[in-house]
């Protein structure tokens, strides 16, 4: 089993994700520079948080054109597991791997704090270790986390049970309290909250770790040891 953490110029949660996979989940992990044009036998790709290219334009709008993204899209289309966290979620939206878009937070400020999430769907490779309806405590840290999708798209998300996490108290104005979604095939997850920031008890919450643990379990069940 091998994890990859994609590094864009301006990624800043790359080391954090790497740390959690290596030191807490205890699985092999490598950084993948955004200029790479091929992927070397990875089983799960993490698109980390941060400010790719400074996000001076719309978040993730430039990163989406990095050479590695062609490969990430191919990998996802073949059923590989991809998780985009925060800026990574924004990149996946820009790349069209997930539906919808991000607006600025309703209060027009950056928001960094712990929030409570409700687990809506445990039937994905990323959330099987939770109980449906479970309330978990995970921090957010973003300027543009106000998720938006048109009416038809929202109906689609609901119909296919693609909403994985909802905010208990909506911090940013996200439509329908959406904090995290999967694609229809359920192999691509995008979420604004940072599970890597709540995977060790020293950081006051381990509620994010089951996401990594779910992935490990899923990969193992699918023949990756």
């Amino acid at each position: 089993m091998k994890f990859g953490v994609v590094v864009f110029p301006g990624s800043n949660c790359d080391h954090d994700c790497y740390h959690v996979v290596k030191e807490v989940l205890k699985q092999p992990v490598e950084f993948i520079w955004h200029k790479e044009t091929k992927l070397d036998n990875f089983d799960c790709l993490i698109i980390p948080g941060g400010f790719s290219y400074g996000d001076y334009l719309r978040c993730g709008a430039i990163a989406r054109f990095s050479p590695i993204m062609e490969e990430v899209i191919k990998f996802a289309n073949k059923g590989g597991l991809v998780i985009g966290i925060c800026n990574g979620f924004q990149v996946l939206l820009e790349a069209g791997l997930l539906p919808g878009a991000m607006l600025r937070n309703k209060n027009l400020h950056f928001i960094c704090k712990f929030v409570e999430l409700k687990v809506e769907n445990t039937d994905t490779p990323f959330s099987s270790e939770y109980k449906k309806g479970q309330i978990i405590r995970i921090p957010v840290a973003h300027n543009e986390g106000n998720y938006y999708i048109d009416e038809k798209g929202l109906a689609e998300l609901k119909k296919n049970n693609q909403i994985v996490f909802r905010y208990v108290e909506n911090p940013n104005g996200a439509l329908d309290d959406i904090a995290g979604i999967v694609n229809k095939e359920r192999n691509v997850l995008g979420m604004m909250p940072h599970p890597e920031r709540s995977s060790e008890i020293e950081l006051t919450s381990k509620d994010g770790f089951p996401i990594f643990e779910s992935i490990r379990k899923w990969l193992k069940e699918h023949g990756k040891s």
Binding site: N12, C13, H15, D16, H19, V20, G49, H109, F110, I111, C112, K113, P139, A141, H194, E196, R197, E200, E202, L203, T204
Partner: peptide, 13 residues
């Protein structure tokens, strides 16, 4: 301080 990212680098205990 909620406008500052005070948790990145997962060191803030």
């Amino acid at each position: 301080y909620e406008q500052y990212d005070h948790m990145v680098q997962i060191g803030t205990t």
